[in-house]
């Protein structure tokens, strides 16, 4: 897999190996249910009684929307042989990758486990995916997302 910035301010991910597309498809699997993330954030808002009821549905709908944009792009990549991340969908991509990383952290405590994370296959694979998603996020920050987007 090779990632290059485009002249239009987006990213192009060239798929080189058969499993590249599988890795990209894992973003949606790893992101899980956005309701969990919005409920977690609502728990922080003790100051506002009806926060969960009023704000959470709007939030998880938005998170679902971001996952849908990513799902559509990954599906198109299967046919094209390359993935195109448009500048206009940079935020959605960052959000979907973040949802995936937050869920992996919730599930496997990747950061607190340290080297222990390498001791079993499932955690190690989760760690490697987290690092890949993080690299993509860094590229999005460096080349796609800006103050005025």
């Amino acid at each position: 897999m090779k990632v290059v910035p485009t002249l239009e301010g987006g990213l192009k991910v060239e798929l080189e190996a058969d499993h590249d597309i599988e890795v990209l498809e894992m973003i949606l699997t790893d992101a899980g249910q956005p309701e969990v993330l919005s409920a977690e954030l609502a728990e922080l808002m003790e100051a506002s009684d009806d926060w969960d009821e009023l704000m959470s549905p709007e939030l998880w709908e938005m998170f679902y929307g971001h996952l849908a944009i990513v799902g559509k792009a990954v599906k198109a990549a299967k046919e094209l042989g390359s993935l195109h991340i448009e500048k206009s969908s940079g935020d959605a991509w960052y959000s979907a990758l973040n949802q995936a990383r937050l869920r992996l952290e919730r599930e496997y405590q990747l950061h607190s486990k340290g080297d222990l994370v390498m001791e079993d296959d499932v955690s190690r694979n989760a760690y490697i995916r987290d690092r890949f998603y993080c690299t993509l996020q860094t590229l999005l920050l460096d080349f796609v997302m800006g103050l005025n987007d």
Binding site: L44, S48, M55, L59
Partner: peptide
């Protein structure tokens, strides 16, 4: 403050408000 927290949550930052 509520508006700002909702905007930070939309960006998936852990944010809260306190008196």
């Amino acid at each position: 403050a509520e508006l700002y927290v909702s905007q930070l949550h939309a960006k998936q930052l852990r944010a809260t408000m306190e008196k």
